[in-house]
Protein backbone atom coordinates (compact mmCIF):
# COMPACT_ATOMS: atom_id res chain seq x y z
CA UNK A 1 0.00 0.00 0.00
CA UNK A 2 1.42 3.35 -1.04
CA UNK A 3 0.83 6.34 1.26
CA UNK A 4 -1.15 9.24 -0.18
CA UNK A 5 0.97 12.34 -0.48
CA UNK A 6 0.02 15.78 -1.78
CA UNK A 7 1.59 19.19 -2.01
CA UNK A 8 -0.47 21.58 0.12
CA UNK A 9 -1.32 25.19 -0.66
CA UNK A 10 1.62 27.53 -0.08
CA UNK A 11 4.21 24.75 -0.31
CA UNK A 12 6.87 24.34 -2.98
CA UNK A 13 6.08 21.29 -5.05
CA UNK A 14 8.86 18.90 -6.03
CA UNK A 15 9.11 17.41 -9.51
CA UNK A 16 8.35 14.00 -7.97
CA UNK A 17 6.88 12.69 -4.74
CA UNK A 18 9.11 10.42 -2.69
CA UNK A 19 8.98 7.80 0.03
CA UNK A 20 11.66 7.26 2.66
CA UNK A 21 12.22 3.62 3.54
CA UNK A 22 14.23 2.25 6.42
CA UNK A 23 15.77 -1.19 6.74
CA UNK A 24 17.98 -2.91 9.24
CA UNK A 25 19.56 -6.29 8.71
CA UNK A 26 20.65 -8.55 11.51
CA UNK A 27 24.40 -8.78 10.97
CA UNK A 28 25.45 -12.17 9.66
CA UNK A 29 22.08 -12.92 8.07
CA UNK A 30 22.49 -13.44 4.35
CA UNK A 31 20.10 -11.24 2.41
CA UNK A 32 17.18 -12.93 0.70
CA UNK A 33 14.31 -11.31 -1.17
CA UNK A 34 11.72 -12.47 1.36
CA UNK A 35 13.80 -11.24 4.29
CA UNK A 36 14.49 -8.00 2.59
CA UNK A 37 10.87 -7.23 1.91
CA UNK A 38 9.95 -7.95 5.54
CA UNK A 39 12.72 -5.78 6.91
CA UNK A 40 12.09 -2.68 4.87
CA UNK A 41 9.43 -0.16 5.90
CA UNK A 42 8.19 3.18 4.61
CA UNK A 43 8.76 5.75 7.34
CA UNK A 44 7.47 8.80 5.52
CA UNK A 45 6.61 10.41 2.23
CA UNK A 46 6.57 13.91 0.82
CA UNK A 47 5.63 15.93 -2.25
CA UNK A 48 6.97 19.37 -1.36
CA UNK A 49 10.17 20.99 -0.13
CA UNK A 50 8.50 21.84 3.18
CA UNK A 51 7.23 18.30 3.74
CA UNK A 52 10.72 16.98 3.01
CA UNK A 53 12.38 19.18 5.64
CA UNK A 54 9.70 18.39 8.20
CA UNK A 55 10.32 14.67 7.79
CA UNK A 56 14.09 15.00 7.50
CA UNK A 57 14.34 16.96 10.77
CA UNK A 58 12.45 14.25 12.61
CA UNK A 59 14.50 11.24 11.60
CA UNK A 60 17.96 10.24 12.81
CA UNK A 61 20.94 11.25 10.73
CA UNK A 62 22.82 8.39 9.05
CA UNK A 63 25.77 8.88 11.45
CA UNK A 64 23.45 8.17 14.40
CA UNK A 65 22.15 4.87 13.02
CA UNK A 66 23.50 1.52 14.13
CA UNK A 67 25.44 -0.69 11.70
CA UNK A 68 23.54 -2.53 8.98
CA UNK A 69 20.90 0.20 8.71
CA UNK A 70 19.87 1.83 5.45
CA UNK A 71 17.77 4.76 4.34
CA UNK A 72 16.29 4.43 0.88
CA UNK A 73 14.83 7.54 -0.67
CA UNK A 74 12.87 6.53 -3.76
CA UNK A 75 10.34 8.12 -6.04
CA UNK A 76 6.78 7.36 -4.96
CA UNK A 77 5.72 4.16 -6.68
CA UNK A 78 9.19 2.64 -6.99
CA UNK A 79 10.18 0.04 -4.41
CA UNK A 80 13.87 0.06 -3.46
CA UNK A 81 14.29 -3.44 -4.83
CA UNK A 82 16.18 -4.83 -7.80
CA UNK A 83 13.05 -6.61 -9.01
CA UNK A 84 10.85 -3.49 -9.23
CA UNK A 85 9.72 -2.70 -12.78
CA UNK A 86 11.56 0.64 -12.71
CA UNK A 87 14.78 -0.94 -11.44
CA UNK A 88 15.08 -4.28 -13.15
CA UNK A 89 17.02 -2.99 -16.17
CA UNK A 90 18.92 -0.49 -14.05
CA UNK A 91 21.93 -0.21 -11.87
CA UNK A 92 23.60 2.07 -9.39
CA UNK A 93 26.68 4.12 -8.73
CA UNK A 94 28.33 3.18 -5.44
CA UNK A 95 30.60 5.41 -3.36
CA UNK A 96 32.30 4.05 -0.26
CA UNK A 97 32.96 6.56 2.47
CA UNK A 98 35.11 6.50 5.53
CA UNK A 99 33.15 6.81 8.74
CA UNK A 100 32.06 10.29 9.71
CA UNK A 101 31.17 11.63 6.25
CA UNK A 102 27.84 9.95 5.52
CA UNK A 103 25.41 12.43 7.09
CA UNK A 104 26.76 15.44 5.26
CA UNK A 105 27.22 13.73 1.91
CA UNK A 106 23.81 12.05 2.12
CA UNK A 107 22.21 15.46 2.64
CA UNK A 108 24.08 16.83 -0.37
CA UNK A 109 22.92 13.95 -2.52
CA UNK A 110 19.31 14.15 -1.38
CA UNK A 111 19.15 17.88 -2.02
CA UNK A 112 20.57 17.44 -5.52
CA UNK A 113 18.11 14.67 -6.31
CA UNK A 114 15.05 16.55 -5.03
CA UNK A 115 16.14 19.69 -6.87
CA UNK A 116 16.46 17.73 -10.15
CA UNK A 117 20.15 18.52 -10.52
CA UNK A 118 20.98 15.29 -12.35
CA UNK A 119 19.34 16.37 -15.62
CA UNK A 120 18.74 12.84 -16.88
CA UNK A 121 14.98 12.97 -17.39
CA UNK A 122 13.13 10.10 -15.73
CA UNK A 123 16.29 8.07 -15.19
CA UNK A 124 16.83 8.52 -11.44
CA UNK A 125 14.90 6.01 -9.30
CA UNK A 126 16.27 6.77 -5.86
CA UNK A 127 19.24 6.86 -3.53
CA UNK A 128 20.45 4.77 -0.61
CA UNK A 129 22.74 5.38 2.34
CA UNK A 130 24.01 2.21 3.97
CA UNK A 131 25.58 2.40 7.41
CA UNK A 132 28.07 -0.39 7.97
CA UNK A 133 30.65 -1.28 10.58
CA UNK A 134 33.84 -0.07 8.95
CA UNK A 135 32.53 2.26 6.24
CA UNK A 136 29.35 3.84 4.94
CA UNK A 137 28.10 3.56 1.38
CA UNK A 138 26.07 5.94 -0.69
CA UNK A 139 24.46 4.85 -3.93
CA UNK A 140 22.17 6.30 -6.55
CA UNK A 141 19.96 4.09 -8.68
CA UNK A 142 18.95 4.69 -12.29
CA UNK A 143 16.63 2.91 -14.70
CA UNK A 144 18.83 2.05 -17.66
CA UNK A 145 22.13 0.36 -16.89
CA UNK A 146 22.94 -0.03 -20.58
CA UNK A 147 22.93 3.69 -21.42
CA UNK A 148 26.50 4.81 -21.02
CA UNK A 149 25.92 8.52 -21.65
CA UNK A 150 23.28 8.61 -18.89
CA UNK A 151 25.56 6.74 -16.51
CA UNK A 152 28.44 9.11 -17.12
CA UNK A 153 26.22 12.10 -16.48
CA UNK A 154 24.94 10.59 -13.24
CA UNK A 155 28.49 9.82 -12.15
CA UNK A 156 29.78 13.31 -12.93
CA UNK A 157 26.84 14.96 -11.17
CA UNK A 158 27.31 12.69 -8.16
CA UNK A 159 30.98 13.56 -8.01
CA UNK A 160 30.17 17.27 -8.20
CA UNK A 161 27.34 17.38 -5.65
CA UNK A 162 29.21 15.23 -3.16
CA UNK A 163 32.32 17.29 -3.82
CA UNK A 164 34.38 14.12 -3.96
CA UNK A 165 38.12 14.25 -4.45
CA UNK A 166 39.00 13.34 -8.07
CA UNK A 167 40.65 10.08 -6.98
CA UNK A 168 37.52 8.75 -5.24
CA UNK A 169 36.62 5.31 -6.54
CA UNK A 170 33.12 5.05 -7.94
CA UNK A 171 31.75 1.71 -9.02
CA UNK A 172 28.76 1.01 -11.23
CA UNK A 173 26.86 -2.19 -10.56
CA UNK A 174 23.87 -3.42 -12.55
CA UNK A 175 20.97 -4.85 -10.57
CA UNK A 176 21.19 -7.97 -12.74
CA UNK A 177 24.65 -8.55 -11.30
CA UNK A 178 23.40 -7.83 -7.77
CA UNK A 179 20.64 -10.41 -8.28
CA UNK A 180 23.19 -12.95 -9.55
CA UNK A 181 25.57 -12.64 -6.63
CA UNK A 182 22.83 -11.73 -4.10
CA UNK A 183 24.94 -8.88 -2.91
CA UNK A 184 24.40 -5.14 -2.94
CA UNK A 185 27.98 -3.95 -3.13
Amino acid sequence: EWPTVKCKQGEHQLQYSYCVWFSRRTPGNKASSANYEQNIKIIGSFASVEQFWTLYSHIARPCDLTSSSDYHLFKHGIKPMWEDEANKKGGKWIVRLRKGLASRLWENLVIAMLGEQFMVGEEICGAVVSVRFAEDIISIWNRTASDNSINIRVRDTLQRVLNLPPNTIMEYKTHTDSLKDRSSF
Binding site: V49, E50, W53, L114, E116, V161
Partner: peptide, 21 residues
Protein backbone atom coordinates in the same frame (compact mmCIF):
# COMPACT_ATOMS: atom_id res chain seq x y z
CA UNK B 1 7.69 19.28 -20.26
CA UNK B 2 8.81 21.79 -17.65
CA UNK B 3 10.81 20.43 -14.77
CA UNK B 4 10.79 21.85 -11.28
CA UNK B 5 14.43 22.55 -10.53
CA UNK B 6 15.68 23.90 -7.19
CA UNK B 7 19.25 24.85 -6.45
CA UNK B 8 21.05 23.83 -3.33
CA UNK B 9 20.98 27.21 -1.59
CA UNK B 10 17.26 27.62 -2.10
CA UNK B 11 16.55 24.19 -0.65
CA UNK B 12 18.86 24.76 2.33
CA UNK B 13 17.20 28.11 3.08
CA UNK B 14 13.78 26.49 2.94
CA UNK B 15 14.75 24.38 5.93
CA UNK B 16 14.04 27.37 8.16
CA UNK B 17 10.68 28.19 6.64
CA UNK B 18 7.78 28.04 9.16
CA UNK B 19 6.01 25.47 6.94
CA UNK B 20 9.06 23.17 7.22
CA UNK B 21 8.88 22.86 11.00
Amino acid sequence: GTRIIYDRNFLLNMRNSPLSQ
